[in-house]
Simulated scan of single mutants.
Amino acid sequence: MTYLVTGATGAIGSAIVAELRARSETVIAHGRSIRTPSCDGIVQWIGGDLLAAEGQDIIREASAGGLAGVIAAHGIPGSAPLADLTRAFTERVMRINFESLLALLEATLPALRRRRGRFVAVASQAGLVGEPDNAAYSASKFAVVGWIRHIAGQASDQDVTYHALCAGCTESPLLTAIHDQFARAQGTATAEEFAALRQRSIPVGRFATPHETAAAAVYLATADGPRPTILAESGGEVVW
């Protein structure tokens, strides 16, 4: 089976690639910063801007043989105090975190239909419950969750199934940077102190590892049984 993973150079994306490789699946790994296509064994590495025609053509060409699944794990943070949000900042977050998924699905839908595949969007628990000082990011992830719920309920296309993984806090350089922004916005704690406070609010008492979040994404993408449309993997912090 062949799977396409976007955001494959990030903490979660690279863990998803590793999880699929461990299952002996063929992987097309996409990263916007990848300039030269390459292949190392069962992983084909490609790049390009998903919102550009050239980037979409690269996706189409790489997936022409059919896809058992697409796991969209790309995205950017969008944390900032509400008073500091600018139109340009918010539009960029929405374009990369939400609009690019529309372009990705358009580019991969024929390949997914050939294999009756699954399209999985790695969203966030911030797409289920709004978070303070995180309005732009939450808005982008709410858009992803709403879009997935809508297209999953359409009866006209049963050849493809759609899922959103609403992951909780996952250990990564991106999470560390976000906590630093939250701490500075509140002006009351360091990033480490903020992270410790956040962990105490999670029933399991810790953040997820990239491997755990990757395993949840791969669970949704595999076709060996029914899967929930929306899966909240948040350590109990947000229940769906």
Rank of each mutant, 00 (worst) to 15 (best):
T2R: 15
G7D: 09
A11I: 04
A11L: 10
S14V: 06
V17T: 08
E19H: 10
A22Y: 01
S24F: 10
T26E: 15
R35S: 07
T36Q: 05
G41H: 11
V43L: 00
Q44H: 14
Q44V: 12
I46C: 03
D49R: 01
L51T: 11
A52E: 11
A53W: 02
R60K: 14
G65Y: 09
A72I: 03
A72V: 12
A73N: 01
G75V: 08
T86F: 00
T86V: 04
M94E: 07
I96C: 04
S100Q: 11
L105N: 10
A107L: 05
T108Q: 01
G117Q: 02
F119T: 02
V122C: 14
G127A: 12
S138P: 06
S140D: 06
K141G: 05
K141P: 05
F142M: 06
G146C: 09
R149M: 08
A152N: 14
G153D: 14
Q154S: 11
V160T: 09
T161P: 04
S172E: 06
A177W: 05
I178C: 06
Q181A: 13
R184S: 10
A185R: 06
T188E: 07
A189D: 11
A189H: 12
A195S: 15
A195M: 13
I202R: 14
V204G: 09
G205W: 15
R206E: 13
R206N: 11
E212R: 01
A215F: 00
V218P: 08
Y219S: 00
L220V: 11
A221F: 01
L231H: 13
L231I: 11
V238Y: 11
W240S: 07
W240D: 06
